[in-house]
Design a protein around this nucleic acid. Structure first.
Length: 798
RNA sequence: GGGAACAUAGCUCAGCUGGGAGAGCGGCGCCCUUACAAGGCGUAGGUCACAGGUUCGAUCCCUGUUGUUCCCACCA
């Protein structure tokens, strides 16, 4: 199912290399690792206290036990002294464990109990005497300052017991029932035993009082049943020495850049960096890893026990004990923690321990991309195992911890909570591309993603936009039937236009002579390529996807395509048709490549519809094309030029919009350039401003309109437009619009003036900024003059 | 108990080393203009959680407060 989901999502790994940790080769490698570590003394079998799940009937690692706040009770019990002195009061949350008590502990400095240490108390209900011992673990302030010690069922008590050589009593069996040690309580479950014992204590007047108590208990990660600390025989791995090296590798990576770390094999960089401290903290406090599990599914531990009690650990299955040659051998029934084999993933999947070609080529790998929820479970173990078994070389150079998808309420998805969103459902409703794009833009957050259906909807629209833009391009290239009868645009013959050169090459060598609009869109494309590239390099996927989105929709569709209609449709620019067709095509193609990592399906589909062009094989997949590279050309001037046109168009559109001038109205307008510095640039854009502002005509002002008393003046930053207002607008409405503009401009002036008159600013701010502010002030004051003039005319007109 | 993060427009979120806050969705107005109504154009909407500090200047850096979240931890 998961593989199916990944394919639907468009994940593009080399599926031929799909592997499973239980595959024969990986199983062999797992055995090899286990036996090697055993021989190195890093794996051992021992009796320890571990967390035990009484439902799953298996040992759990520390990581598999989740602390949960539970309401409980704090019971104060009376332990009678054998010397007849005042009884000890002991507080506990788990009275049933008293069955396994082997001591009572007090703090060595506790004046209240000084004389008691070394004496004995009577264990309630059990008819057993246990010693009072002194141990500094005990907190004098907590409860009564006296602690019952149950080494068999409590981690702390186990440690205390070891320090004082106390007996370890197991009173529960693997199913969580009281065993024979519990005498009259045998057979009861933990909960039943607790109730019965409390009742008996009450009867015996040994239960002093009961309080409500909130405390955290460890529950099994899988089934949420309370984990029972139990003493049992398990396999452990000493990970401390490996952890030290694993810490060193990340420390080294901290002082390196992402690019630097890629060139070496002894350092790891974690992104986002804030996770490194978490990683250190865990690694520095790491304890021996309990690796055996009492499950029926997994890699069986390669250890055999003979009838004489000898243990044989072997890479091959054995039939005889290695020590006594007894043929009565039986393999350990336990299996390994699933993360044991997963921790070997980066090298066992490449054929290790054999030095295969794949291994030599791909180890160390470049990027490990996963969720932070398995940073310890998986990532840390891979680092430790990887370095240990590969001559200190790291398994991967960079770790990218992506954000975690949560549900709409921000909760982690889980099967038990039933709030899992199936990616297939989203793909069915919105498409894989929209889903991927959304995840990419949301990946910027450090921690979690609340999946927002509205946003997916928005990116679905983007995919649609891309499709429609492509349709337009194909029409303009004459490769799709235009619905325009008698469309004058010739079918683009790229071979002829570029002389057989690939479009990209032809553009690169000729772009300096292109029309400003074509130069401009190429410059915008270059900028976008740089941004997308940087984002991908630095794992800021949201910046990359956002840059693609903004470029395609905000520049290419909203402006360039609109401009191109004029460029292609007017006889004035007939000489630019071929060049413009190439640019439309080239920029579309490069955009498809930039967008492809995010929306692979639709971009591939569109790509397959693109017409034949020099150097391109029909049917070649987009996925295999080289990623775009930005030209090293300075497009600043072109971007500036077109921004002058855009701002003029914006001003005229705002005038139309706010005055509710119907789109069908085509006013005749004349202009006068206000900023002499941009006069040439402005004049080159006149036909395009006219077209996009939907004007009948736009001509240099000759005095006719200016002299006309019914003419209105529209002020943009670089130019003034004269428009006959009569019958076109409601003069009051236009007065309001210009007045609003004036107020905003005045506020601007005030702000800038305040800045410039502050002596400390003039003294300390960078000169560049001061000059910029001065220029700005001048332009604003100029504009006020023009606005006042416009207002005056409007008032007269009224 | 220790550590980390987050708090920006009604909603979901950008804002990369400090120089007058942006997008999408939603709202309002005008448009079915032949790529696109899953659209176009215009427009409203934010003391950037709160209080201090550093700075000529703070959404951005520092400290504290409040709220939310996550991770780690053996307080009976």
């Amino acid at each position: 199912m998961i593989v199916g989901q990944m394919k639907k999502l468009g994940a593009s790994p080399d599926w031929d290399r799909l592997q499973f940790t239980m595959d024969p080769h990986l199983s062999t490698a797992v055995r090899h690792v286990f036996v090697t570590l055993f021989e190195q003394g890093l794996i051992y079998r021992g009796t320890r206290i571990i967390n035990w799940c009484t439902r799953c009937q298996t040992a759990l690692s520390d990581l598999e036990v989740k602390p949960v706040e539970r309401k409980g009770h704090f019971y104060h019990l009376k332990y009678e002294r054998t010397d007849g002195g005042a009884p000890l009061i002991i507080a506990t949350t788990r009275p049933e464990t008293l069955l396994g008590d082997t001591a009572v502990a007090v703090h060595p400095d506790d004046e209240r109990y000084k004389g008691l240490v070394g004496k004995k108390v009577k264990l309630p209900l059990m008819n057993r005497e246990i010693p009072v011992i002194a141990d500094s673990y005990v907190d004098k302030e907590f409860g009564s300052g006296a602690l019952k010690v149950t080494p068999g069922h409590d981690f702390n008590d186990y440690d205390i017991g070891k320090r004082h050589n106390l007996a370890v009593l197991n009173v529960f069996d693997k199913a969580g029932k009281v065993n024979a040690e519990g005498k009259q309580y045998q057979g009861l479950s933990v909960t039943e035993a607790r109730e019965k014992i409390l009742a008996d204590l009450a009867t015996a007047e040994l239960l002093v009082r009961t309080e409500d108590h909130m405390h955290s208990v460890g529950v099994c990660d899988r089934c949420e049943r309370i984990a029972e600390p139990m003493v049992s025989e398990q396999w452990f791995m000493n990970v401390k020495p490996m952890a030290e090296k694993a810490i060193a590798a990340v420390r080294k990576g901290e002082s390196l850049t992402l690019a630097e770390v890629e060139k070496r094999d002894d350092a790891i960089k974690i992104v986002p960096e804030s996770w490194t401290s978490t990683y250190y903290h865990w690694m520095e406090n790491i304890r021996d890893w309990c690796i055996s599990r009492q499950l029926w599914w997994g890699h069986q531990i390669p250890a055999w026990y003979c009838d004489k009690g000898h243990t044989t650990v072997s890479r091959e299955n054995i039939t005889k004990c290695a020590t006594c040659a007894s043929a009565r051998v039986v393999q350990d029934e336990d299996v390994l923690d699933t993360w044991f084999s997963s921790g070997l993933w980066p090298f066992t999947t490449l054929g290790w321990p054999e030095k295969t070609k794949a291994y030599n080529t791909f180890y160390p790998t470049n990027v490990m991309e996963t969720g932070f929820d398995i940073l310890f479970f998986w990532v840390a173990r891979m680092v430790m195992m990887g370095m240990h078994f590969n001559e200190g070389r790291v398994p991967f150079k960079r770790v990218y911890l992506h954000a975690m998808v949560r549900d709409e309420k921000g909760q982690k998805m889980s099967k038990t909570k039933g709030n899992v969103i199936d990616p297939l459902d989203i793909i069915r409703d919105y498409g894989a591309d929209a889903f991927r794009f959304t995840l990419s833009t949301m990946a910027g957050q450090g921690r979690d993603v609340k999946l927002s259906l509205d946003r997916i909807e928005g990116y679905k629209a983007f995919c649609n936009k891309m499709w429609n833009a492509s349709r337009y391009v194909l029409m303009r290239l004459g490769h799709v039937a235009s619905e325009l009868p008698g469309d004058p645009i010739p079918k683009a013959d790229f071979k002829k236009i570029t002389g057989g050169k690939p479009l990209a090459d032809w553009v690169a060598s000729n772009r300096k002579d292109f029309h400003p609009l074509n130069k401009w869109i190429l410059a915008e494309l270059d900028r976008t390529i740089v941004t997308v590239d940087r984002g991908l390099e630095e794992f800021r996927l949201n910046e990359s996807s956002q840059a693609v989105y903004d470029f395609v929709w905000g520049q290419y569709c909203d402006w360039y395509i609109e401009f191109s209609k004029e460029l292609l449709g007017s006889a004035e620019h007939a000489a630019r048709v071929g060049e413009t067709q190439v640019c439309l095509m080239h920029v579309l193609e490069e955009s498809l490549k930039l967008a492809h990592p995010f929306i692979p399906f639709i971009t591939e589909e569109i790509y397959q519809h693109l017409p034949e062009r020099p150097g391109m094989k029909q049917g070649a997949p987009l996925m295999l094309q080289a990623f775009p590279v930005a030209a090293k050309q300075d497009g600043t001037r072109d971007i500036e030029t077109v921004s002058v046109w855009k701002s003029a168009i914006d001003t005229l559109r705002a005038f139309r919009g706010e005055n509710n001038i119907p789109p069908k109205a085509r006013p005749k307008v004349s202009y006068e350039v206000l900023d002499a510095k941009v006069a040439d640039q402005f004049i080159a854009g006149v036909p395009f401003i006219r077209a996009l502002a939907q004007l009948e005509s736009l001509a240099g002002e000759t005095g006719y309109l200016r002299g006309n008393p019914t003419t209105g003046e529209i002020i943009s930053t670089t130019a003034k437009f004269f428009i006959p207002l009569k019958g076109l607008v409601d003069v009051d409405g236009e007065l309001k619009r210009v007045e609003k503009d004036k107020q905003a401009t005045l506020a601007d002036i005030e702000f800038t003036k305040a800045k410039l008159t502050k002596p400390t600013f003039i003294e300390k701010a960078p000169k560049e900024l001061i000059d910029k502010e001065k220029d700005k002030l001048k332009a604003l004051e100029n504009k006020i003059g023009e606005l006042d003039h416009a207002l005056e005319r409007l008032r007269k007109l009224k």
